[in-house]
Design a protein around this nucleic acid. Structure first.
Lengths: 181, 181
DNA sequence: CCGATGCGCTTGAGCATTCAACTACGATCA
DNA sequence: TGATCGTAGTTGAATGCTCAAGCGCATCGG
């Protein structure tokens, strides 16, 4: 009967994955691995950047004046501040991006896509999209694609909620340090 | 009318992603990013290893005598020989794995899970599985999970075929060097 | 039996990322 | 005004990965 309360116990029995879940999980890992490697390789080979950098360029290109603060960019890409800073330095060396100090709040740095960066992105996009299409969408029927979309959105909203909650917990812990005083 | 022949032309028009595809793709990137980060962080925090190393340990644990040649392991994990070699060195330092020279073919090295490695894996597995369940399977109905599984298998088989084909092309190019002689 | 070719694996350099400081600026409140 | 705290971003060390080169063993053709 104790098993009934499951995760409430101090050392609950592990809820192992059943056969179907196991297969799904391994298919997920494997698919993701192959798909991601292929995309990374293509971008690295043709344009000398990892996919993460491509995302940064896309985000900037879609922003007014092709410009965002580092913090905003970190937020939309979900990268750490440090990762972003290092990445910006690399992209700056390539001349695809520049840092501009904000006038009013002199702490914030604006990341801006240069003209050269925009052109590079325009040239890189077709090959990348073609690869995504070839490896993923060309293989799926519309129905399958919509199923995938719905599943992803379901998982995603849960993940975002979980992250939000983690954030709240951290904030709560900061606001209410009852354990230390 | 020329647009009709699409990819047959030398510089075909880019087949951009339509709205639904775009949304699906971004949901995919985003979901994957959050899910993967969470898993990596959990394994790194609790056990000091990346997910890739966990996979290696699992593969070894499921193999007879908890042992495979480096090449076999590289094949089932789909890691490069180099990546595997570096990873083995790290896991060796932790005492979770050992290298054993093969007697008959002295080129091949056998990778073996040590008892300590097996114990570590046994301890790490519940937390990892719990995380996978919490972040993914707990959010999905059986129907959704099966849809996801089917979509993944579809994409996966295509990816494997593509890779096979790339391999064949390379092999063909090697076997039939008509361009150089 | 020996030279050429191929296989299995390792190595080292270079890049991306993380984590933990750290700097510099801004806001708040006494 | 100035101490304190929070915010924005950078830096450097450590780790993991890729790519290219290399080393030793096996195999095959003469």
């Amino acid at each position: 009967m104790l098993k009934r309360i499951g995760t409430l116990g101090p050392m609950p029995e592990t809820r192992w994955l059943d056969e179907e879940e196991q297969q799904t999980w391994r298919a997920y890992i494997w698919t993701n691995h192959l798909l991601w490697e292929a995309l990374e390789r293509q971008l690295q080979r043709d344009w000398g950047i990892p996919h993460a950098y491509y995302i940064m360029l896309v985000c900037l290109s879609e922003s007014p004046e092709r410009m965002m603060s580092m913090t905003q960019l970190a937020s939309v890409t979900q990268f750490s501040a440090s990762r972003l800073s290092h990445a910006m330095s690399r992209l700056e060396e390539k001349g695809w991006v520049r840092r501009v100090k904000h006038d009013e709040d002199r702490r914030t740095t604006m990341a801006q896509l240069t003209d050269a960066g925009f052109e590079a992105l325009e040239k890189a996009a077709p090959g990348h999209v073609e690869e995504v299409r070839r490896l993923l969408f060309d293989r799926l029927s519309r129905t399958q694609m919509r199923q995938l979309h719905d599943v992803l959105v379901t998982v995603l909203s849960a993940l975002e909620a979980a992250e939000q909650q983690d954030g709240d917990q951290a904030a709560t812990w900061l606001r209410n340090p009852s354990s230390s005083g």
